[in-house]
Design a protein around this nucleic acid. Structure first.
Lengths: 185, 185
DNA sequence: GGATGTACCGGAGGGTCCTCCGTTTCGCTC
DNA sequence: GAGCGAAACGGAGGACCCTCCGGTACATCC
C-alpha cells in the first residue's frame, strides 16, 4: 500500500495530495475525492493508488492527532486511578472525535474493517492498558476485549452534532459505557 | 409521503415495487434501487416518490416483523422480572437484526435521522416500558433515555457477521450494555 | 361521454465512489 | 548517455444515489 513510495514523482504526488486534502477536508469533511485529485493536479487513479480508500487518506491526515490520543493514555494513568483515567481518556477521545470529524470517521472505519492493524492496533493497545490497570486494582471487570470497547465507543460519533442536546447525550452514553465496564461487586 | 395514494395506478405501482423489493432485498441486502425499479417496471422516479429513501422502503418491507418485536416487550415483561425481560428482549432484537439485515439497517437509520417518528416512536416506547419497569423494581437505573439505549444497541449490527466469533462478541457487548443500565447499589 | 386539472409517471442528468488498463516516466545498468 | 523494465500515472467507464421537470393518464364534473 504505502510501504516505500520509492519514486520521486510518486512522493511528490503523495505530498501534494495530502496538502490539498488537509485543506479540503477541513473546509468540508465530505469533500469529494475527485475534487481533491483535480486540485492536487493528479488523476483520480493516482489518488486511489496512494490511498486505496477514503479512510486511508483521512487516517494519514490525522495520524499525528491520533498518536497524541494514544500517548495520553499512559499519562492519564500515571495521574489518576485507573477508572478515572479510563473515563477521562474516553472523554478526550470522544471530544476530539466530535471536533475533528475525521478521527471519528477513521475509528468508525476501523471497527468495520477490523484488520489493517498497522494504524488500528496501537489504539486498541492503549485501551487495553487502561482496562488492564482497572482490572488489576479491581475497579473494572477483567478480561474485557478492548476492541469491544472501541466498538461501543464508536456509537458516540453517530450522534448528530446538529441536534440540540447532542453533547449531553454523548455524556450520558459514555457514562453508561463506563458503568458497563466496572467490576460488579 | 404515503398517506393516501389515491390513484389506482399509484397503488398498483406501490404494491409491485414492494413485491419485487422483498425478493430482491432478501436475495441481496444491497440490491440497487435502480434494479428494483427496473424489475418492477417503473421508473426510478416513481420508486423514489413512493419511498423517498432506501430506509423507507425497507422499513415498509419489515413493518410486520418490527411490530412483532415491539409486541414482544410487554409479553416478556409479564413472564419475567424486568431485568431479565430487558435482556431477553434485547437479545431477540439483536438476533433478529442479524438474521434479517434489513431490520438492523432500519434501526440504524432511525438512530441517525432521529425524527420520522411514525415508525420510530413505538420502538422507543417499547424500550421505555422495559426501562420503566426495571426502574420501578430497582434493578435498573431510573431516568434512562430509551433512545440512548437504542443507539447503544445499534452498535451490534456493526459487527461483521462474517468474521469468526461475531456471535460471541455480540453477546459480550450486549452484556456490557445491560450492565451499564443496571442500578448501581 | 367529453373536457380538464392534478396526481402521478419516467428517465435524463449531475454527483460520487472506485476499478481497470493503456501510456508515460523514472531510476538503474551497462 | 542510451536502453529498458518496472513503477506510477491518468482518465474513461461502470455502478450507484437521488433530483428535477416535461409529459401522461386518471378521476371527476358537467
Amino acid at each position: 500500500m504505502n510501504p516505500k513510495p520509492t519514486r520521486r514523482d510518486a512522493l511528490d504526488n503523495r505530498e501534494r495530495i495530502l496538502t490539498v486534502a488537509r485543506e479540503a477536508i477541513a473546509a468540508s469533511s465530505t469533500a469529494s475525492l475527485t475534487a481533491i485529485a483535480k486540485q492536487a493536479g493528479v488523476g483520480i487513479g493516482t489518488l486511489y493508488r496512494h490511498f486505496p480508500t477514503r479512510e486511508t487518506l483521512i487516517l494519514e491526515l490525522y495520524r499525528h492527532d491520533i498518536q497524541h490520543l494514544i500517548d495520553r493514555a499512559p499519562v492519564l494513568l500515571a495521574e489518576h486511578p485507573p477508572l478515572a483515567a479510563l473515563r477521562l481518556w474516553l472523554e478526550e477521545v470522544a471530544h476530539y472525535g466530535r471536533l475533528k470529524y475525521g478521527v471519528a470517521e477513521v475509528i468508525h472505519a476501523a471497527t468495520d474493517g477490523g484488520a489493517d492493524d498497522e494504524y488500528f492496533a496501537p489504539f486498541v493497545a492503549a485501551i487495553d492498558v487502561l482496562l488492564k490497570a482497572g482490572a488489576a486494582d479491581g475497579s473494572l471487570k477483567s478480561g474485557i476485549d478492548p476492541e469491544d470497547v472501541l466498538l461501543q465507543l464508536s456509537v458516540l460519533w453517530r450522534i448528530d452534532p446538529a441536534r440540540p442536546g447532542s453533547e449531553a447525550r454523548a455524556g450520558r452514553i459514555l457514562e453508561l459505557i463506563v458503568d458497563g465496564l466496572r467490576a460488579t461487586p
